[in-house]
Structures are given as structure tokens and as C-alpha cells.
């Protein structure tokens, strides 16, 4: 015997978290892209070609390699 559908889906909007829109975004929220789809930005092909995302990660120190304590005056 094959399969049984045990719960039916509900669609209010077209799903946006599928393969495009969210891309590799790790947030798991799916709402930013939803808003983007609703607003429908008019991007002309090539407009974003020069855009590069550079993550900013501050160096707050490390637990593995703690900085040597400064000598007390």
C-alpha cells in the first residue's frame, strides 16, 4: 500500500521559502522575503551585479584562546 494524506495544507500566499528568495539565509524566518514579494521591487537585470555582502564579525575575544591578562599597575 502506498501513501495516505493525513493533513491538508492551507495556502494564503504562494510559499516563498522554496529554493529562491530565502537563498542561504540562516534565519529560518521566511518573512523578509514574503514582504519583498508583496512589495515587488523592480530590479532591472544587472542592477545588483556589483553588490557584495561582506559579513561584519567583530572580534570580541575568544574563550579558546583568551588574551593574556594585562599587567596590573
Amino acid at each position: 500500500m502506498g501513501k495516505i494524506v493525513i493533513e491538508s495544507g492551507t495556502i494564503d500566499f504562494e510559499p516563498v521559502g522554496i529554493k529562491k528568495g530565502c537563498g542561504k539565509c540562516p534565519s529560518g524566518c521566511r518573512t523578509v522575503c514574503q514582504r519583498k514579494n508583496v512589495v515587488k521591487f523592480d530590479l532591472v537585470g544587472g542592477d545588483m551585479d556589483d553588490f557584495e555582502v561582506v559579513p561584519i564579525v567583530h572580534d570580541y575575544g575568544s574563550f579558546r584562546n583568551p588574551r593574556p591578562e594585562k599587567e596590573e599597575k
Binding site: M1, G2, K3, I4, V5, I6, E7, S8, G9, T10, I11, D12, F13, E14, P15, V16, G17, I18, G28, R30, T31, Q34
Partner: peptide
């Protein structure tokens, strides 16, 4: 074994389909 597509999406919940 059950599969649900788009389980967590806020606007869409896919079907849950059960297999042996």
C-alpha cells in the same frame, strides 16, 4: 514515516503524507 513539506512556513502548511 511521515513527510510534511513547508512545515514551518508562516503562510503555508503542506500536506503530511505517510509511508510504510
Amino acid at each position: 514515516w511521515q513527510i510534511t513539506k513547508n512545515k514551518i512556513n508562516m503562510y503555508y502548511v503542506g500536506d503530511t503524507i505517510e509511508y510504510d
